[in-house]
Simulated scan of single mutants.
Amino acid sequence: MKKLLTLSAIVASFAAPAMAAEEVNVYSYRQPFLVEPMFNEFTKETGIKVNVKFAKKGLAEKLQQEGEYSPADVVLTSDFARLVELSDKEVVQPVSSKVIESNIPAQFRDKESEWVALTMRTRSVYSSRDRVGKLGNDFDYSDLANEEFKGKICTRSGKHPYNVSLVSSMIAHHGEAATKEWLEGVKANLARKPQGNDRAQVKAIKEGLCDVSLGNSYYLGKMVNDKEQKVWADAVYINFPNQNTTGTHVNVSGMAMAKHSPNKENALKLMEFLTGDKAQQMYAEVNYEYPVKEGVKRSELVASWGDFKADTVSLDDIAANHSAAIKLLDEVKFDL
């Protein structure tokens, strides 16, 4: 009788399993202050708990190591290069969603549906208010190789993903030969060896070490709202190159569904939520980025920088030129 009761209990446990809490697991390169408010809002609306693991690097490798046993459902990245890495390492899967397709323009979605952009930022040129002034609409990235900027340019490493994407876009528009010549010109105009991050270049302008620098747009917002760095921000103008030609180069943050997502339905719900008006607005306000969903209002500070024409070259085309961009940077010894 005891054995029969035990067998009955086992059968019952399979027939009527206990209800597990609804959840979704996120691996994120994006910082807690930026994404946690959105996750809290998502949980409030859906009842689905969001578990997050934050990292500064190595998430693609982690997903490879975990394989089919990975708990990850959604991966958030801080830049386009890492979206491409996820696809290249085959650790994500295609996502089909009419909601996402309706919210996000095709330019900002992978043609194989393996990733989607969430926010946009420009690769701008900062100029000294005192020594250069505001650059006109006729200013192009190509002008950075001109003699007038000899010894006046600061930038971080050419091989940083932000700069690699810019070089990749130059290849898409002008070809490898012309881009190599441009890189040689920019290198010859550097005020110092590439170093530091984007904010360090603006600091260098404030200190008179250089007059112009390359930098992502959202860093201006971060500096303006930092007590120590505001003086750096006050020393520069933000400029949007190529307004009369191809448009300013843009990079993106984004997301993808993990290849072995154990909570696929909940993962899709989160991804759709992040492309919606509320999450796009929150992204824009907190990190001074541009929403990729059309019609979503920019933050007041970002709007104050003015409108600009963005480059419409496909992100897939930029990804295709990534290796060529690295090769050219090596050939001209840009960082040396």
Rank of each mutant, 00 (worst) to 15 (best):
S113K: 15
M170E: 13
V125H: 06
D138Y: 13
G136A: 14
H160C: 04
G136L: 05
K152E: 13
E112V: 05
M120N: 07
L118S: 02
A172C: 03
R121G: 12
R121P: 00
S142R: 04
H174L: 11
D140V: 00
D130S: 12
K150R: 13
D143Y: 06
S124C: 07
L135W: 03
V167K: 10
R131F: 06
G136Y: 07
H174W: 11
F149L: 02
S157N: 08
S127F: 06
R109D: 02
I153E: 09
L166A: 14
T122A: 12
E112N: 15
C154Y: 01
D138L: 03
R123M: 15
A172D: 11
D138K: 12
S124R: 02
P161R: 01
G158I: 11
C154S: 09
T155F: 07
T155L: 13
V132R: 03
K152I: 03
V167A: 11
T119Y: 04
T119D: 09
F139V: 03
R109G: 02
I171L: 09
S127I: 01
R123Q: 14
H174V: 07
S127D: 02
S142L: 08
R123N: 13
V164T: 15
D143C: 00
D140W: 01
F139Y: 04
K159W: 00
S169D: 14
D140H: 06
L118A: 04
D110H: 14
L118P: 01
Y126M: 11
S165E: 11
Y141H: 00
A145C: 07
S128Y: 00
D138P: 09
V167S: 12
S157I: 04
A145P: 06
V164N: 14
F139S: 08
L166K: 00
F149W: 15
I153Y: 10
H173T: 01
T119K: 06
T122H: 01
K134W: 07
D138H: 14
L118M: 08
G158F: 06
K134V: 12
S157M: 13
K150Q: 15
R121D: 15
